[in-house]
Computed example of a mutant assay.
Amino acid sequence: MLVQRIKHFGLGKTTFLESVAKGAVASGFKVALICPSSDLVRIWRQSMDLEGVDVLPHDFAILRRMIRQKPYDYILLDDCNSMDQSQGDPVTLVEYLLKHKADKQVIIGTYDSDTDNRKANFVEWQLTELATTNESDIEGGSIEIYGEDPEGREVSSEVSIPDIANQALGLIAELRAS
């Protein structure tokens, strides 16, 4: 099994994934392209000529069923940062689903570094707020976090401490995986 995580991808990601998919299909391989949303699935299907490529939404249950029904040789994941990370890194999940298969598969996931930075900054901000919160201000396992919206108005949100910890653990797992 070949697993590749491509980070800091900028322009050309769509062309890269399209080229890999078309080349693999032309060589007789079965290809799945996993997208972060149903809207992107529709866009890929409508705007790209990907005959022979199964374009699927990132849904763990659908993905598990499809991988069992049709053994793919290439599994391409578009924009992993935008996919649901609640069950872990999408590439790692696909790798897990395929770990007992004897076949040779190629798994390629693309990641946008700007999204990585925004996510890391958001988690760092929450951790900083938690670290500077007086213990007496922590009620019911949550803290109130204040910030500004894009128009400069003050906004606040109640965030649970376990949610902050889970986000931080997710970032740590991503760093270890890369």
Rank of each mutant, 00 (worst) to 15 (best):
D39K: 13
D39S: 14
D39C: 10
D39P: 02
L40E: 10
L40W: 00
L40C: 04
L40F: 02
V41S: 04
V41H: 06
V41T: 02
V41P: 03
R42W: 01
R42M: 08
I43R: 10
R45M: 00
R45H: 04
R45K: 13
Q46S: 09
Q46W: 03
Q46A: 11
S47N: 13
S47F: 10
S47A: 12
M48S: 00
M48T: 03
M48E: 01
D49R: 12
D49V: 10
D49M: 11
D49E: 14
L50S: 00
E51N: 14
E51V: 08
E51Q: 14
E51M: 06
E51K: 14
V53N: 08
V53T: 00
D54W: 06
D54R: 12
V55Q: 09
V55G: 05
L56F: 02
L56G: 04
L56M: 11
P57Y: 08
H58V: 03
D59K: 13
F60M: 15
F60W: 15
F60I: 15
F60G: 15
A61V: 08
A61H: 07
I62R: 13
I62H: 07
L63C: 03
L63I: 11
R64Y: 07
R64Q: 14
R65P: 00
R65M: 14
R65N: 14
R65L: 14
M66E: 12
M66L: 04
I67Q: 09
I67R: 06
I67A: 13
R68W: 05
Q69S: 15
Q69K: 13
Q69N: 13
K70T: 04
K70C: 07
K70I: 08
P71I: 04
P71M: 10
P71Q: 15
P71W: 09
Y72T: 06
D73L: 10
Y74M: 02
Y74L: 09
Y74S: 09
I75N: 02
I75V: 15
I75K: 07
I75L: 15
L76Y: 04
L76I: 08
L77V: 01
L77S: 09
D78L: 05
D78I: 02
D79L: 12
D79A: 13
C80R: 07
C80W: 04
C80K: 07
C80Y: 06
C80H: 04
C80P: 08
C80V: 11
N81M: 10
N81R: 07
S82W: 09
S82D: 14
S82Q: 12
S82F: 11
S82P: 00
S82N: 12
M83A: 13
M83L: 09
D84L: 07
Q85Y: 02
Q85A: 09
Q85V: 03
Q85I: 09
Q85W: 03
S86F: 03
Q87W: 02
Q87N: 13
Q87S: 15
G88C: 12
G88H: 01
G88I: 03
D89I: 02
D89T: 09
D89Q: 10
